[in-house]
């Protein structure tokens, strides 16, 4: 048998010896499904003090361009820290239906 009979396999270009993981959203899946209560921002009451953004453990409070905040419902776990840290009661926890 000649050498041409054996196909030469190319080595894969990205190859990790160590089980290396890269930062990416959703490493535990869509955590928004864990939620029982969801935070709803009242933009009229919101003054843009960003305390909810500072206290949110999950980084799901997003800064808007007008200085106010919005919630990323895909990953928000619904702990309610944003609602308790808000000094103006602009965030309300509403039961998920």
């Amino acid at each position: 048998m000649t050498a041409e009979a054996y196909p030469v396999l190319e080595e894969p270009k990205t190859f990790f010896l160590a089980p290396l993981s890269k930062p990416a959203p959703g490493s535990a899946g869509k955590t928004g499904t864990w939620r029982t209560h969801k935070p709803v921002v009242n933009l009229e009451k919101c003054t843009g003090c960003l305390l909810c953004w500072l206290y949110c453990p999950e980084n799901t409070v997003i800064k808007l361009e007008n200085g106010k905040v919005a919630i990323d419902y895909e990953y928000c776990k619904g702990c309610g820290i944003c609602a308790t840290s808000c000094p103006f009661d602009a965030i309300e926890m509403v039961p998920e239906v």
């Binding site: 930062p23 959203p25 535990a28 955590t31 939620r35 999950e58 990953y75 619904g78 702990c79």
Partner: peptide
Amino acid sequence: KYVMPGNAACPG
């Protein structure tokens, strides 16, 4: 993203 959303931590 100071912490990646959707990690396996408990709520709060």
